[in-house]
Write a protein that binds this DNA or RNA. Structure first.
Lengths: 245, 245
DNA sequence: GATTAGTTACTGTGATCACGATTAGGGACT
DNA sequence: AGTCCCTAATCGTGATCACAGTAACTAATC
């Protein structure tokens, strides 16, 4: 499973590629973030600095700094020997994260609904239409990607440099687990939250938008908690072996 | 301004110092965090990798990783040329941070009051007594340190790996500005919030504790916002530079 | 055949260097 | 005296290396 993304696929032994500024580290970081959100790495996966570097076609330095940033954002956790891995969320930790997500994303939703223009209504509808189509095709990877896009379209509208990093960190933390759980068979996605959200933004009703977001996240949380208790043996919450990179 | 702390002051050219594991980076990071919270660096201060390294008696590597982590936590911000500096908070940014602090720390306070044992009452009283003493002596550095200890005693009691990193990040972001503002002459510290908090924990009343915390943070916010408008010319709120991503 | 000891490969860490870009400073010319 | 250009110092970045600790694997011994 080489090459996480389409990062400059040249051989490491080639001559100096034209790099203007620190694009390398940014690309590596973006790649890793995307991979985490998309469920490329399972919870518990341990990263190897040199292997990751060579698989990305770069040296260890940019990977070191990227992993360091993800550790600082608690998207990855540090092992006693200094290695980093994708955290295995306990049921308690998962519940905590969603508790905070409820509060923070509710605030962001209210602010967004208070300040944003009407163009967001169309954006949200388009995203949700695509989501429903992917849901019908049972393409859960795409469903999760579009769900993320739906939520972040709202949060970006809040235009807060304080809220956004917190929300991103929370999503990075529960992303791997979410991906894992929503790939299970008995998965029925409830779209009522998204509908209520669109209605609230159409009517520019911040209170309604806020409670709709609380409802939407609450449903996701309940599903995940339920899955956690089902998959307690083989799921990402138990001891699962490492996955080759 | 050499030597932030008492970090291994040996000459870099000496023989191998006995280092068991990655204590160096941890010490550097702890030093920088402490310095930020204590107001050693003013908002706008630009860091130089090599100078910081030599002033700390180490090489560039541990400093690089520490600064990187602080950037990831938004405690420092990245300039277009890759240098990092202490952010100059705009009045809007400061207001946002305190808005989130109100929500997050209120939750942490409620959880703490619900779960923690009675020993916290004594701890809080001791800290607040020392705070009042330092206040009488007009030792504002000590007051700020004890205020931080008071708050974090509560937050640590909530025992959450989700809330604590968020709270720490928020304090790191507004720390330099707080230190700067509270060193001003016309500063009267209102201790009523701390008193109400202690009462609430004594009676184990989570709701009262939560609203007392909201009150306490709100008072600090109002004072800071007021200071911001006073010092609009020369203070840390002056012409806010671009905010790099 | 099971256990233990020894060796080998691999881990992150810290230090150092080359590179390109940016910046500040000084000198010369108008 | 003011302005402009050139140079030198400094910046972060990416690559590479030595080191110490650890984990795993192999081989020898009981």
């Amino acid at each position: 499973m080489n090459k996480l993304g389409d990062l400059a696929g040249e051989a490491p032994s080639s001559e100096h590629p034209k790099r203007s500024r620190s694009v390398v580290q940014d690309q590596v970081l973006a790649n890793l973030k995307d991979a985490l959100m998309s469920g490329v790495f399972l919870p518990g996966h341990v990263f190897s600095l040199r292997k990751l570097a060579s698989s990305l076609g770069t040296s260890a330095m940019p990977v070191r700094e990227s992993l360091n940033r993800l550790v600082a954002a608690h998207a990855l956790e540090e092992l006693p020997n200094g290695s980093v891995r994708v955290p295995k969320l306990s049921a308690k930790g998962l519940k905590e994260i969603f508790e905070i997500r409820l509060s923070i994303e509710a605030i962001a939703t209210r602010i967004a609904c208070e300040t944003v223009g009407p163009s967001i209504v169309r954006d949200l509808r388009e995203i949700n239409d695509a989501l429903l189509k992917s849901l019908k095709a049972m393409n859960m990877t795409e469903v999760l990607r579009l769900n993320q896009k739906f939520h972040f379209t709202i949060y970006e509208a809040a235009d807060s440099e304080v809220l956004m990093p917190i929300i991103e960190s929370l999503w990075l933390r529960c992303g791997p687990t979410m991906y894992y759980s929503f790939n299970s068979p008995n998965n029925l996605w409830d779209n009522s939250g998204h509908r209520l959200l669109q209605d609230a933004f159409k009517k520019k009703d911040p209170e309604a938008a806020q409670s709709a977001m609380v409802l939407d996240i609450g449903k996701t949380r309940d599903f995940l908690i339920n899955q956690a208790s089902i998959e307690q043996k083989a799921g990402p919450f138990a001891s699962l072996g490492k996955v080759a990179v």
